[in-house]
Design a protein around this nucleic acid. Structure first.
Lengths: 335, 335
DNA sequence: CTGTTAGCGCGTTCAG
DNA sequence: CTGAACGCGCTAACAG
């Protein structure tokens, strides 16, 4: 594996000259510049980025942390980020934390050790106090999941309360009486703390219920975020004394799981049970009945987050601190 | 950001002693060991991995290259790899090449510059001659997509020809006459070369057709790999002079797109058109009718690939060169 | 058992 | 315009 030294030797110049050529610096003799480029090509030379990093130069690489890459919402948001990054010849590396606070911290090291220029948190499991120190090591942008306070760090998300409020109102207007609720929990190893995002959604739900003079039964509260979780939720629901006639979920995956089991059990959707998803994932319109869901603007969220990141890296005027994108309810056949 | 020097100073020892403590080496006075650990904790010290890398030590990080992370097949395979890696406290970084040969090469640099200990190719767009030199820089494992020859590099995949052969036979047995075929092409920037994987699948298809004395019409050949591609394929199909009565696709996403459009156009599946998917993605049984598809053992593929990688890193006896896992056809309602 | 020394590959002064 | 020299943070070899 050739180093800068080999290139210098072959081109008959010093290492500094090679370095200057690499970084397109002026004041290099045209002849030598050509000789160096020639030597680089012949040797298949590529600079060692660990060394460059150690020296403190940019990597044009950005890390994105997600908790569960198999979730279509996350892969879509990452895809949007990737698109913007590629346009400006940045690369992305994707870190799947599996909802582990430890993994999250491990990946934050990428920033600390200058292996990436910046880091985007699309999920968040550690306390903000734990994350905050890392802001000294490079720009951080928060997208989707967020902490209660995030001193100075840009946040891109949707108004979770409002979204869930509207979904609840939608069900109430349709006349559903016994509404169940599923919290979108990512099981953490140790503590299963409810994130601000989940809290806010629940708040929206409660507010709508209260305004309608309805109240909730504890047994109608569920947890889950995957297809499998959805299946299990239906099985639990069947056993309840007074069965819900509608359910609000935190993701289209959970909703799809419930629908699948319900249909298998011979239930009619939405007559026997109405279901609301969240995200508007690609499969929301492929299942039957088509899923009523809240459309998360993943494309825009991903793009906006990455654009803020690139702006930070260019040290432009600081981007807006918090951005709340619109997340409209899409009423379809499942309610 | 504290360095090893700061820790040494604070603990009243030399940098080498700190290094020895970090790497759990013997021959360090217990007192000093404690002092060092104390100092590390107080300073919140973490080693700079760029420096470690430059020095040539392991990173316990493995890169995985995929062409399209939004494809559930890829996110599932990555998830399985991640699981195995986590068990042995390795971390994974995910590289989305978007089918770009350039991006692929960029990411291969991670290996060259020792930023990762090993690299798994779950997709492959460059020629093997281009990739081969990188095998000098660290272990590479190939999973799913493969080159024609891969001198010494372990490959984990399925028997593509056999899988598609069986799917074709299934359709023929059911009595379908006019069978269309969709090649799973990842559009490359420049050249849209057909990969060995796609070639082999097509071979299986052709063989089955030949044995049955059937033959293909060029107009019944399509390309695509996404939901959107599937939708477009249906629109093209509608315009054909003699319409196919069945279609074999290269992924469940394409199949789902075709089904969606077909249903929207009032076609009955499988009566007006039979559809076979590929992968057995989570949503294959959620759509209506349930999709006949080839089950790719993503879990096993991902695990096997990662296990081979870890074996290589431990420099154990060389793993088997090529592994072909079973990919059975699951006959369901769409045929 | 421990500190000193010498690079890993690169970018950046600072003298020419 | 160019090369010599230094140091980024870390580890390994070598003397104590």
């Amino acid at each position: 594996m050739p180093t800068i030294k080999d290139v210098a030797l072959r081109a008959g110049v010093s290492r500094s000259t090679v370095s200057r050529v690499m970084n397109n610096q002026p004041y290099v003799d045209e002849e030598k510049r050509k000789a160096v480029k020639q030597a680089m090509k012949e040797l298949g030379y590529l600079p060692n980025s660990s060394a460059q990093r150690l020296r403190g130069t940019e990597t044009r690489t950005i890390a994105v942390l997600v908790s569960r890459i198999v979730n279509p919402f996350f892969s879509a948001i990452v895809d949007a980020m990737d698109e913007v990054a590629a346009e400006q010849s940045y690369r992305l590396i994707l870190c799947n934390t599996r909802g582990s606070a430890n993994q999250e911290l491990h990946f934050l090291q990428l920033l600390r050790t200058k292996q990436v220029d910046g880091l985007i948190l699309a999920s968040l499991v550690n306390d903000w106090e734990t994350i905050a120190p890392y802001t000294d090591y490079g720009p951080i942008v928060i997208c989707n999941e967020y902490p209660r306070q995030s001193d100075g760090v840009p946040v891109v998300t949707i108004d979770q309360s409002k979204a869930m409020y509207e979904a609840t109102v939608h069900l109430l207007k349709k006349g559903y009486k016994q509404i169940a609720y599923c919290n979108p929990i990512t099981k953490t190893e140790s503590d299963a703390v409810i994130s601000p995002l989940a809290q806010d959604r629940y708040l929206g739900f409660c507010q709508a219920m209260e305004e309608a003079g309805m109240h909730m039964y504890g047994e109608c509260l569920f947890l889950g975020h995957s297809l499998e979780d959805g299946r299990n939720i239906f099985k639990q629901m069947v056993c309840l004394a007074n069965r819900p006639d509608a359910i609000l979920t935190g993701s289209d995956e959970v909703a799809a799981g419930i629908i699948a089991e319900a249909k298998a059990a011979g239930w009619k959707i939405p007559d026997d049970l109405a279901i609301v998803g969240f995200d508007n994932q690609p499969h929301a319109t492929l299942i039957e009945p088509e899923l009523t869901t809240i459309h998360q603007p993943v494309q825009e969220m991903g793009r906006a987050a990455m654009e803020r990141m690139l702006a930070l890296l260019r040290k432009e005027s600081p981007p807006p601190l918090a951005t709340y994108l619109e997340a409209p309810l899409l009423a379809r056949k499942s309610t």
